[in-house]
């Protein structure tokens, strides 16, 4: 039932590890990030932290080829999902995005669509699916996003009518409805109140059983709470490209980081 998106993708199934080697990303002639090499483990939560403008969002978007939708933006280097080079010459970026889903900083439900249609959008826009199949996927996804109980009686009301926290969970439901293998989240809680934030954090803890999750966050406590591994990014100066300073188990980063810059950042001495 839910295998539609999977089987159509050029990338097979199973849990996936992401390996990035020596990656640079540009906006026109401006180099935003430089020389990033890291491994992201499957079925775990990896957090990206670092001061604003150091390229966390940019890097995250290179992982599912969303970076290149910005005019003039390009990427150099390699990103592998298991053994497949995502930037290989005959890889279809559309199928990469089907396999690696994304949740954005500001909740962005489709304003012309109902709650049901929002969740069904990924499947529907990608091809013909039967109504009964859709019903099943929408229910599973909304339950997966802990939203089902709140919206099950108003599935045909517009998605834009929900609260901010509900909208963000709707966006998560929309993203998991196409059964991606990896879920990228760019500061998913930064526009939300503390209660909604907790709801999303609980959800991340559940989702990590099935997905590889990467989350960008400004909130150090959040990184410590939800993630297994943490990567710290920094930039030498304003206008210089951002770099990966270090990446390690979250407990190690927050108690005993290898780099002085990391320690300064998490103890609040800058950034």
């Amino acid at each position: 039932m839910v295998a539609v998106a999977r089987e159509e993708g050029v990338l097979g199934t199973m849990a996936k590890q992401i390996e990035v080697s020596d990656l640079d990303a540009y906006y026109g002639s401006h180099k935003a990030i430089e020389g990033i090499t890291m491994t992201i483990e499957p079925r775990s939560v990896t957090a990206f932290i670092g001061p604003s403008g150091c390229g966390k969002s940019t890097f995250l978007r290179t992982l599912n080829r969303m970076h290149e939708v910005i005019p003039g933006a390009r990427v150099e280097g390699k990103v592998r999902l298991e053994d497949q080079d995502l930037y290989g010459p005959d890889v279809d970026p559309v199928s990469v995005r089907r396999t690696i889903g994304m949740v954005f900083q500001r909740p962005n439900p489709f304003p012309t669509m109902s709650i049901f249609d929002n969740v069904a959008a990924g499947l529907r826009l990608n091809g013909r699916v039967s109504r009964s199949e859709l019903d099943g996927v929408v229910e599973t996804s909304l339950k997966g996003a802990n939203l089902w109980n709140e919206v099950k009686d108003r599935l045909n009301k517009p998605g834009a009518g929900l609260s901010g926290g509900q909208q963000q969970r709707l966006c998560i439901a929309r993203a998991i409805a196409v059964r991606p293998e990896v879920l990228l989240m760019d500061e998913p809680c930064s526009a939300l109140d503390p209660i909604s934030t907790l709801a999303i954090e609980d959800l991340i803890a559940q989702l990590k059983k099935d997905y590889t999750i990467v989350i960008v966050t400004h909130n150090m406590q959040q990184a410590a709470r939800v993630s297994d591994r943490t990567a710290f990014f920094n930039l030498a100066a304003q206008g210089r490209p951002g770099k990966l300073i270090e990446m390690d188990d979250t407990s190690k980063i927050f108690t005993n980081p290898a780099e002085k810059a990391t320690e300064d950042y998490i103890t609040g001495r800058f950034g």
Binding site: A5, G9, N64, M66, V69, V94, S95, V96, R97, R98, T99, G101, M102, F104, R106, N108, P109, F110, P111, T112, A121, G122, L125, N126, C171, R174, A175, V178
Partner: peptide, 20 residues
């Protein structure tokens, strides 16, 4: 953001234009 939300679901550009 709406276009990007659609791209991130693996929807091709022309479908994004037509449907979103």
């Amino acid at each position: 953001e709406l276009r990007e939300a659609s791209y991130a679901l693996g929807v091709p550009k022309w479908r994004t234009v037509v449907k979103v």
